[in-house]
Amino acid sequence: MDDESIITRARWARRGAFGILTIIALVAAVGLPLYVFPADPPAPAADLIYVIGPPTATRIADAESLRDQGIADEVLVSVPSSGPDSADELAYCWRAYVTCRTPEPFTTRGEAAMLQAYATDGDAVIVLTYTPHVLRTRFIFDACADADVTVIPVDERLNLSRWIYNYAYQSAAFAKAWVLGCADPPAGALP
């Protein structure tokens, strides 16, 4: 190989690397207002506070804080059917003002559908979820729930690898939610 072809290949490799880094930077910049800094409205008075899964300590603490502020008296918590966060195992579920249920399917769409049993058209509901999930949650609950829903982000610390994962996961899941809407998936399809 002659020197000129080596130099040409090196230039193309640098341009390719620069192009890839530019695309990554653009995707990261576009995702900032969507996944990292979504709108964070003040919590209005509500009929229900809804903690969607998983019921982390931070989400439960935020629900308690809102309840203590008099935002709402009742709390609904989406829990898995088994394990340490299930209704049988999670001590928070034993409080008189807390209802813990497992949506079917245990997805954001399933959680929106489950809300229909606890809130009707005109009821105000505050939904708590972690920050990267807020945009997709708003989209799904706006489309699939009759209640007046306000989605509020919960500040759960994520490391860089979790942020990268969430950028990819939430983007793909949002595309799926946009395509499927509130319809049940075909038999045998992934939830």
Rank of each mutant, 00 (worst) to 15 (best):
S5A: 10
A10R: 15
T22C: 15
R157V: 14
C144T: 06
F174S: 04
A145R: 08
T131P: 08
A46Y: 11
D62P: 03
H133F: 07
L128A: 05
P44M: 05
I7H: 06
I71S: 05
T22R: 14
D73L: 07
G122F: 05
A117G: 11
L128I: 06
V149P: 04
L26R: 09
T129S: 13
V98M: 04
A45S: 15
A10T: 13
R11P: 02
Y35M: 15
G31W: 12
G19T: 10
R15S: 04
A147F: 13
A147C: 14
D85A: 00
L115T: 05
Y35G: 07
S5Q: 09
R101D: 00
T131R: 15
R136G: 09
A124M: 09
T22P: 12
P186N: 02
P153C: 11
I60V: 01
P54L: 05
D47Y: 07
L190I: 13
V125S: 06
E74T: 08
G70Y: 08
D184Y: 01
G31V: 01
A119T: 07
P105M: 07
P103G: 06
Y130P: 03
I6F: 06
P41L: 06
T56M: 03
F18L: 15
R15H: 05
I152Q: 06
V149L: 09
D148H: 10
A189E: 03
D146H: 11
A175W: 09
R59I: 02
A113R: 15
A113T: 14
R67F: 10
T56N: 07
F18H: 14
D47H: 06
G181H: 00
L160F: 12
D123F: 06
A28N: 07
F141T: 10
P80A: 00
R95H: 06
T22Q: 14
R14C: 15
T56I: 02
P41V: 03
I52P: 03
S78G: 01
A43N: 07
E156T: 13
L76G: 03
A124R: 14
Y118D: 11
I7S: 06
H133W: 08
D146E: 14
Y92K: 01
A39K: 00
L32S: 13
G70A: 08
A57P: 07
T150V: 08
D142T: 11
L160G: 13
C93T: 02
R136S: 10
A57R: 09
C144R: 13
L76T: 00
T56G: 05
R9T: 02
E111G: 14
L160I: 08
D121S: 15
A17V: 15
A177P: 03
V77A: 04
L26K: 10
P80M: 01
P185C: 02
D3R: 06
A143D: 11
A113E: 13
A187E: 05
G31E: 11
D73S: 10
V75R: 04
F37K: 04
M114S: 08
A143C: 08
E111V: 08
D148K: 13
I71M: 00
E156H: 09
A63M: 01
R67N: 10
D68C: 09
D2L: 08
Q116I: 10
T107C: 01
L32M: 14
R59H: 13
A119L: 12
P55M: 05
Q116D: 14
